[in-house]
Design a protein around this nucleic acid. Structure first.
Length: 281
DNA sequence: TTCCAGGCGTATC
DNA sequence: GATACGCATGGA
């Protein structure tokens, strides 16, 4: 790890890392881009620990962070011990993945908290990213932090109406009650065989295959987890009718992140000739 | 107005 | 086990 300690905090020199691509790609929902004198700044949280992080054109500044905190918290959260350059090199044996890595090669997989991740992806179902962020923001605003399972276990869908989370409120309550009672033990699930882990997570109401996979990938860093949402379904149909190539095995989830970002952007800004813009009116 | 969003529960066959 | 449908909310 290449970093220096400065009077403002830590300055990290890191390849394969882009703040927009990592913090605003739909894997985490509590990071906001902030105005600053730097090229790019984000403010957000891991658990109850706040962070302001900037890119100044050459390095990543972890504002007012001690070396001890950087090494024990943030280096792990940003998965700095994984060589994403090497992974991308491996992925580039496949044409589509090569393009995806070239498009958003600065994505890193955040090692998030399992409980926050479970709540967040329950909220994400049949929803869009701005609204997911809004609901989570109202939730944290209400408690002053991201509420624990124990805190949410005594809520009801009525008492959570201020979230405007719709039909998902009852699912949040069920997840909180099961996690708080120990009926669902996120800590032990994280170490289970992945099939057993999926089943255990799916005993929660509102947790199906997609949400379970997201919790495994983003909240338990199980990089072999492969969430299939509407976007990835399109990728699979269009590019991988035979399935994801074998050499990706073990890192399907990381490949998924590159593909997700790639396909979403392709459809947002379609290349010329690939649209229906010019059909007869 | 209608459609859609990082899906899932339920009913029905 | 497969498939169809409703679901809360809000932005486009």
């Amino acid at each position: 790890m290449d970093y220096i300690v400065t009077e403002h905090g830590i300055k990290l020199f890191q390849n394969d890392f882009d703040l927009d691509e990592t913090l605003d790609c739909g894997q985490a929902f509590r990071w906001e881009r902030a105005e600053s004198k730097y090229k790019c700044t984000y403010k957000g949280f891991f658990l109850d620990r706040p962070l302001e992080i900037s890119f100044d054109g050459e390095g990543f500044i972890f504002h007012n962070v001690s070396e001890e905190e950087f090494l024990s918290v943030w280096a792990d959260y940003f998965d700095l011990s994984t060589d994403y350059g090497l992974l991308k090199k491996q992925f580039s044996g496949d044409d589509t993945l090569k393009k995806a890595c070239g498009f958003a090669g600065g994505i890193r997989l955040l090692k998030q908290d399992a409980w926050e991740c479970l709540c967040s992806f329950i909220i994400s179902q049949n929803n869009n990213i701005p609204r997911i962020k809004g609901i989570i923001s109202r939730l944290c605003g209400h408690y002053g932090h991201f509420p624990s399972a124990a805190e949410l276990a005594s809520e009801t869908s009525d008492s959570l109406s201020y979230l405007r989370s719709g039909f998902r409120a009852k699912y949040i309550v069920d997840a909180a009650q099961k996690a708080a009672s120990g009926e669902v033990n996120l800590n032990s699930i994280s170490g289970m065989d992945i099939e057993d882990a999926r089943k255990a997570l799916m005993t929660i109401k509102g947790v199906g295959p997609k949400v379970a996979e997201c919790v495994l990938l983003f909240g338990m860093h199980r990089t072999e987890a492969f969430p299939v949402d509407v976007w990835i379904k399109r990728v699979m149909e269009q590019y991988y009718p035979q399935g994801i190539p074998d050499f990706v095995r073990g890192n399907e989830g990381i490949a998924q992140q590159y593909l997700f970002h790639y396909i979403r952007n392709l459809e947002k800004q379609p290349e010329k000739g690939n649209t229906e813009e010019n059909v007869t009116k």
